[in-house]
Design a protein around this nucleic acid. Structure first.
Length: 515
RNA sequence: GGCCCCGUAGCUCAGCGGCCUAGAGCAGUCGACUCAUAAUCGAUAAGACCUCGGUUCGAAUCCGAGCGGGGCUACCA
């Protein structure tokens, strides 16, 4: 079955930082694992480019909003390349393909009665051209925080999405799809808020122009969040269906919806878990399968903030690349990150300890000692195993099952654990069977061959499972094991016992240098 | 104000439809070994399971209150 995974689209008013890197890396590991399994995967990311903030930043810089968006979108795309991320498309909300489809969706919502023209009333800051909520206005003592002038009571005509009409259907949907929102703590938040009742939400703005024009009433632009959410289906051509467009994109990509996973940060949960499903219901499109809302990285025990100076920004990240390598960064993101309900602490010492104890001492050292012995005792050629693997084929197959199951659940920690466990078992096996002693007794040559063949084959299989996490380093390992051609084969074949034929050249390798 | 989550070894966390004489990884200590990137393997030490009270034959696990941390959301117009 075709599978689709998405990151949120990143707001171009921001600079790439650890948050973007994390979400995208999580998706990348999953996408690579699924492709390795031979699944037909579509991995989508992109940029969110409209809205008043972009308009203002552009004005401040004296450029057009489009020019600013172009510049920053290019930066995000550059960063994806630097990170070696394997997304299949990069959608920008200012692209015609997106804008046209969003208009088609909104038109359909209007025609079906899910969108109506209503009046919005609130406290308006004329200098800032912004509305404040009642609470916020009161906090500000009804004065502009910038100019100090009193806020005005203003009204505005806006188009509203009839979110309140979907209360029951959403409740039913959540009831019949337990686990739709993950982790559970996040789902509870959504359910709690849902219980309080839903109000209709304005989906257009008239106080600025940098957005997609509302079809048929062009002094309104579509609110940036509504615009942005639709990227998940416009990238697949779903708006084409309304007839005015060619269905070419849809013909190629329509199969990828519904998305298996929308991976997001917890701050944008409400839009994804409630508003987005309601929009899809209104349009009679299928629901995504799962929303996974991860938590945040903090740094050295503190919330990251620019003023604290503990923000893990791009230059900081690139410093880690330089010192430990890209794969080590991916490993830390994927295995130590805040994928579940609690925040994760980013600490240089912890990064270093993880690198050493897991990558250097296990993933690097285990293949190193195995290939070294094959080099020393068998002239670098895979020995023949008269025992057909002994207990190892069963162990490997159990690990492969655990790995696949973990990938299905987006449990990256468990998915990494499976091959790591195998390597640790190989280490223990070597200490127990002492091939380096067996090698001293010529009459035990067959035994030695079996031990090392079993180790080498297990290392190869563990390496396959580690590829989604450590693509570059595992490619190195593959090369050392003369398995370059394997890269194209699906995991079902590559995880089978016995692909390393006797006589295959195995080169000594040292994958992760001690730092 | 309402709702929700968390508080377990030095660190990060698992266990939480009661029996745990409380576990894992990392860090520590001791030992083994030498094929390997001073790596690996084994053993070992370490905890009022936040506090108090309750239920129970029995509670880290259930209930109540409190303290501490976090989240969502509202409001005293």
């Amino acid at each position: 079955m075709p599978a689709c995974i998405t990151t949120p689209i990143y707001y171009v008013n921001d600079r790439p930082h650890i948050g973007h890197a994390y979400t995208t890396t999580v998706c990348d590991v999953w996408a690579r694992a699924m492709r390795l399994r031979g699944e037909d995967v579509f991995f989508l990311t992109g940029t969110d480019e409209h809205g008043v903030k972009v308009e203002k930043s552009a004005a401040a810089k004296g450029v057009t909003p489009q020019a600013l968006a172009d510049e920053n979108a290019a930066e995000f795309q550059r960063v994806l390349k630097v990170f070696g991320l394997s997304n299949d498309d990069f959608i920008r909300t200012t692209e015609p393909r997106h804008e046209k489809q969003v208009q088609a969706f909104v038109k359909r919502l209007l025609e079906s009665g899910s969108v109506y023209l209503g009046t919005f009333e609130g406290w308006y800051d004329e200098g800032q051209e912004e509305y404040y909520t009642e609470t916020k206005a009161k906090e500000l003592d009804y004065k502009s925080p910038i100019s100090g002038r009193p806020l005005a009571r203003a009204t505005e005509q806006n188009y509203y999405f009839r979110l309140s009409a979907f209360q029951q259907r959403l409740e039913q949907f959540f009831a019949s799809n337990p686990g739709f929102v993950q982790p559970t703590a996040r789902q509870n938040e959504v359910l709690g808020r849902l219980r309080e009742g839903l109000q209709d939400v304005p989906i257009t703005r008239t106080n600025f122009t940098w957005g997609i024009p509302f079809p048929g009433d062009e002094k309104h632009v579509i609110y940036v969040w509504i615009d942005a959410l639709f990227n998940y289906v416009t990238a697949l051509g779903y708006g084409d269906r309304d007839g005015a467009f060619t269905g070419d994109l849809f013909a190629r990509r329509g199969k990828y919806w519904p998305a298996q996973y929308h991976v997001i940060g917890k701050e944008i949960l409400w839009f994804h878990a409630v508003i987005w499903p309601a929009l899809l219901m209104a349009l009679e499109l299928p629901m995504p399968r799962r929303i996974h809302a991860h938590s945040f990285w903090i740094a050295d025990g503190q919330k990251m903030s620019k003023s604290m100076g503990n923000f893990v920004d791009l230059p900081t990240i690139e410093g880690y690349f330089a010192k430990y390598g890209l794969d080590a960064w991916r490993w830390y993101m994927a295995t130590q990150g805040p994928l579940q309900a609690s925040d994760a602490d980013f600490r240089a010492q912890h990064f270093h300890d993880t690198y050493t104890s897991e990558l250097v001492n296990v993933v690097g050292n285990c293949p190193s000692r195995v290939t070294a012995m094959v080099g020393k005792y068998f002239e670098g050629k895979m020995p023949a195993d008269a025992q057909q693997g002994g207990e190892w084929p069963a162990r490997c197959s159990a690990a492969a099952d655990a790995w696949a199951k973990a990938i299905d659940e987006l449990d990256l920690v468990a998915a990494a654990q499976a091959p790591m466990g195998l390597l640790r078992e190989v280490d223990a096996f070597i200490n127990r069977t002492e091939p380096f002693k067996v090698a001293k007794d010529p009459s035990r040559a067959a035994e030695l061959a079996s031990i090392l063949a079993q180790c080498a084959e297990t290392v190869r299989i563990a390496g396959v499972m580690l590829e989604p996490f450590l693509p570059a380093k595992m490619a190195e390992l593959r090369t050392a094991l003369s398995g370059e051609a394997d890269a194209a084969l699906p995991a079902s074949q590559r995880l089978q016992w016995g692909r390393l034929a006797p006589g295959t050249p195995l080169a000594k390798c040292a994958l992760f240098p001690r730092v």
